[in-house]
């Protein structure tokens, strides 16, 4: 499945799609989007790159095994979930918010970190599944 057009297109598409996925993640609290969708878009970006350039190159680009993202994401999500218990003596998963608004992203709070955890887990899971299957089949 190597075509020059696809492979060079994907080289530009990958950063664009990744940027888009982060954008979708960050605005999720206000407009359609969020961790799940962002994560899925990011993984599709990588899979597209893998189809165009071969799995090896994508792996090289990624540096780490995608499975590594799963525990990282889970840790981020769980930390953000227990943060209110530790810092504010509030129940699990209560939202904590930074009072000032930040341009583009909006307000920053523990929910955003939780969503980031979801994002990382989704990327890790879908890439692990697809990469493992395409390697062994």
């Amino acid at each position: 499945m190597k075509s020059i057009i696809l492979s060079s297109a994907s080289n530009y598409l990958l950063p664009l799609l990744l940027l888009f996925s982060v954008f979708v993640l960050l605005r999720g609290h206000y407009l359609p989007g969020g961790g799940f969708i962002g994560g899925l878009i990011a993984s599709i970006a990588f899979i597209l790159h893998a189809f165009a350039n071969g799995l090896k190159k994508t792996r090289y680009l990624l540096r780490i095994h995608p499975g590594f993202l799963i525990p990282v994401g889970l840790t981020v999500a769980i930390l953000s979930a227990v943060a209110p218990m530790i810092f504010a003596d509030l129940p699990l998963l209560t939202g904590l918010w930074y009072p000032d608004e930040i341009p583009v992203i909006g307000k920053i709070g523990s929910a955003l970190f939780f969503d980031t955890g979801v994002y990382l887990v989704v990327v890790g899971v879908s890439l692990t599944i697809i990469f493992t299957i395409s390697e062994t089949v």
């Binding site: 799940f36 899971v125 879908s126």
Partner: peptide, 20 residues
């Protein structure tokens, strides 16, 4: 439904690899 869609992806991938 959003949750269901994402979970079903996990289920399908596991099931299909199991079949394989």
């Amino acid at each position: 439904i959003l949750t269901a869609i994402v979970i079903s992806f996990g289920l399908q991938s596991f099931a299909i690899v199991l079949i394989k």
